[in-house]
Amino acid sequence: MKRITDYIEKQSFGVCSTLGDRLGFSTSSVRLSFVYASFFTFGSPIVLYFALAFWMNVRRAMRRQRSTVWDL
């Protein structure tokens, strides 16, 4: 079961796993907090989730474009 959820998370956006790694929480607890917060606030954390996913994809694209610090 864990392999399936890890695969889906990596193929989708990886927001929860990245947040969990950076903050020192487990990925499943971050996922559960997003789900619970979405229920209690009528879906507003979903907007935050997609904004974070967009930002992470922009950062990945920027890293791929520039090979060194001196490339502007």
Rank of each mutant, 00 (worst) to 15 (best):
F54E: 13
V47A: 13
L32F: 11
T5D: 09
V35Y: 12
R64T: 03
R64M: 03
A37P: 00
V30C: 13
T27Y: 04
S33N: 02
L23T: 12
F13A: 07
R22C: 04
E9V: 00
K10H: 11
R31Q: 15
A51W: 06
S33E: 02
F40L: 15
L48Q: 01
Y49A: 05
E9A: 03
L48Y: 02
L19K: 02
F25M: 08
D71P: 02
D6I: 09
V69Y: 15
V58W: 07
K2N: 15
Y36Q: 08
R31L: 13
Y49P: 03
L72E: 06
F34S: 13
Q11F: 10
M1H: 13
T18F: 11
V58K: 10
S17F: 01
L32D: 12
S17K: 08
T5H: 08
D21W: 05
Y49D: 04
S29K: 08
R63Q: 15
P45R: 01
L19V: 14
M1F: 11
R31M: 14
A61V: 04
G43R: 02
Q11C: 14
M56T: 00
Y7M: 05
T18C: 09
E9F: 02
P45I: 03
V47R: 07
L32N: 12
G14W: 05
V30I: 15
Y49T: 05
V35F: 13
L72M: 00
A61H: 10
G43I: 02
E9M: 01
G43M: 02
A61Q: 09
F40C: 07
D71S: 14
L19Y: 06
S44A: 03
S28V: 05
C16N: 09
T68G: 06
R31H: 12
V35E: 05
L19W: 03
L48N: 00
Y49E: 05
S67C: 01
Y7R: 00
V30H: 12
S26Q: 15
L72D: 06
I8Y: 14
V47I: 15
T5C: 07
V58D: 03
V35K: 06
T18H: 11
S33K: 01
E9R: 01
L52I: 06
S17L: 00
